Amino acid sequence: MNDTGKTALIVGASRGLGYALTAEFLSRGWRVTATERTPSALHELAESAEGRLTVETVDITVPEQVAALRERLARSAFDLLYVNAGTNYTTDPSATVADVSTEDFARVMVTNVLSPLRVIETLQDLVRATGTIGVMSSGQGSIADNTKGGFEVYRASKSALNQLMRSFAARHADDPRTLLLMAPGWVKTELGGPGARLTIDESIPGVADTIEAYAGKGGLHYLDREGKTVNW
């Protein structure tokens, strides 16, 4: 694979969609820095990546670790910062807000909402002016499309993530970089479960296509894997 010269920082890439997105961009000739919280299969992937994959360690729920990552990458410049890290479910994914424990609720919100935006705030200046900042959102984050309920806490976390990205965009209205909220679909991963509608191979290439297609367009976009706009 020819080296395109493009660079990506993918946060939360040790497994599932983040790992697959890392492998996808490597297959397209990108150079990737990917993060893990604990040792993962990323190291095996790096062995076959001909020097185009660098693995970093960070727990995004620990601000000091995110700041330390920023220091380690101080001399880097990326075309893409993509935050995939997050958790799908509470202990009981069917729990309503009437039933969920405070601890579970707080854990999901810190992992899915607060921490990704802290990562973006901390690492944003590593992204080129022509670059893209993206977050793995979900179609379940859409308020307008929530006609059946279910997965209440997860839905709420993705809606809150979308809202904070919209606030980030408003605060950086003059920033030329593209901001993306990506909805990859319900995918068969450890977190998505075996009953999910899509395989990773049916989702991630489309996610990567959409990210590449929106490079340089600027503005905030809430999109699915086919590049279609998702209802707020």
Rank of each mutant, 00 (worst) to 15 (best):
F25Y: 13
R197M: 03
A95R: 04
T199I: 05
A23G: 13
Y89P: 01
G134L: 01
A46L: 05
M1L: 12
T96I: 12
R37D: 12
S137R: 04
E212K: 02
R72G: 03
V58T: 12
D79A: 11
F168Y: 15
R225E: 10
T178A: 08
L114R: 04
L181A: 01
F151A: 14
F25K: 01
G219M: 08
A34C: 07
G51M: 09
A23H: 07
R72S: 06
R72I: 02
R70T: 08
A95K: 00
L179A: 04
D79K: 05
T33D: 14
T4Y: 08
S203V: 06
G12K: 05
M1I: 13
T57C: 08
T210Q: 00
P205K: 11
M136S: 10
E152I: 11
A46N: 07
A77D: 09
R31V: 04
A85G: 03
L191H: 10
G51R: 06
E190C: 09
E56C: 04
V62P: 11
P205E: 13
V32K: 00
L191S: 13
E103P: 07
R177H: 06
A215T: 15
L220A: 12
L73T: 15
R75V: 13
L80P: 00
G29S: 11
E50Y: 12
L45N: 07
E24S: 09
I200Y: 06
D3N: 10
N88L: 15
L123F: 03
T122W: 00
T229V: 14
E226Y: 15
V11P: 03
G149W: 03
T210Y: 09
P184Y: 08
D3C: 02
G216H: 08
E24D: 12
L81M: 08
E24H: 04
T54D: 09
L191W: 04
K228A: 13
T130L: 02
S115K: 00
S40Y: 13
S76Q: 14
A215E: 14
T210A: 11
E152C: 14
T178N: 02
G86S: 13
F168K: 01
A213Q: 03
G216E: 01
G51T: 11
I10V: 12
Q163I: 13
S167G: 11
E47D: 09
L21D: 02
N84W: 04
N2Q: 04
D201E: 15
T61E: 09
G149C: 07
